[in-house]
């Protein structure tokens, strides 16, 4: 594990991605304590105050400190995206591995159905699910997880099929190993690496999707300072105070970039050929 970390830091993408994510993790954990002001404190005198000594990133339409809202809002954005991706990965990996293991007609039927489900654009599927389950952050998370599952199933299956055809798995079959040994000891450790990489990159999509649902009014609900919601609120005040819009936009982008960079870094670091 420490070995992996060392190799990760050696790749430029991995180093930058990890650094950004450490900062984001700190913000998620300690946001309320780091925030210079109370994010809900309304200050009518300070409405649309530009960035300066009092409000580092400026103040919004109610005079609330934008930086404080961002720092606190990280909690309602990033963990949700992370949870949605993990849930989607677990569902997808189970289906994908099962499909690869069953093989034959079952595999064909499962994969054709997954292809068909993937014909529904991810955002549309999430929208349909949220409108059924009801608005709210938790429901949005579940919807994103379900929307991600088919894609993860595809990835896992193709990796698992590839691993299944390796001679060391054949050797285990020839030895007469039990199915559980083959799946968990021979296949899974080798399937894990590409799936972890794919998952990491997908967190960035989840962050964006979650913010989009909130932006459309179906995800996190006011007065939460979720970043997508902040952008939605800020749109009508673009003329007076562009910073209330730009700050959360950049926060979303930085998070997405961080996970993308980490994913690319992991891809290099997890390549077993580089393990020397």
């Amino acid at each position: 594990m420490t070995d992996l970390l060392r190799r990760l830091v050696r790749t430029p993408q991995g180093a930058i991605g990890l650094l950004l994510l450490l900062v984001l993790a700190a913000v998620c954990l300690f946001g309320p304590w780091l925030a210079p002001q109370d994010p809900e404190k309304i200050d009518f005198l300070g409405r649309f105050r530009p960035a300066g000594a009092e409000n580092w990133f400026g103040a919004d339409q109610l005079g609330r400190d934008v930086l404080s809202r961002l720092l606190v809002g990280a909690r309602s954005t990033i963990p949700m995206a992370l949870a949605a991706t993990l849930l989607g990965t677990v569902i997808g990996s189970v289906v994908g591995t099962a499909s690869a293991y069953l093989g034959g007609r079952w595999d064909e039927a499962i994969m054709r159905t997954i292809d068909a489900v993937m014909a529904v654009p991810g955002l549309l599927l999430a929208l349909l699910l949220v409108s059924t389950l009801g608005n709210g952050a938790t429901n949005a998370m579940v919807a994103i997880a379900v929307a991600f599952a088919p894609g993860m199933a595809r990835v896992t299956r193709s990796v698992a099929l590839n691993v299944r055809n390796q001679d060391y798995v054949k050797a285990a079959i020839v030895r007469g190993e039990r199915g559980s040994w083959i799946v968990f000891r021979e296949m899974l450790p080798n399937v894990m690496a590409p799936v972890v990489i794919e998952t990491t990159i997908r967190v960035s999509f989840a962050v964006m999707l979650f913010a989009t649902l909130s932006f459309l009014g179906l995800g996190a609900q006011p007065p939460a300072s979720e970043w997508g919601l902040m952008v939605a609120d800020a749109r009508q005040y673009v003329h007076q105070a562009p910073w209330i819009l730009i700050a959360p936009s950049i926060a979303i982008a930085v998070t997405a970039i961080a996970f993308n960079l980490l994913g690319d870094g992991l891809r290099d670091a997890m390549n077993p050929r580089n393990e020397r």
Partner: peptide
Amino acid sequence: GRAMDRQYRRAVQIVFQHPDSSLNPRQ
């Protein structure tokens, strides 16, 4: 197929062509 018994599986072993793929890289 998979119904081959243990005694036979012990007595008959195979070595594969590609050395790179015949050993599990994570063991």
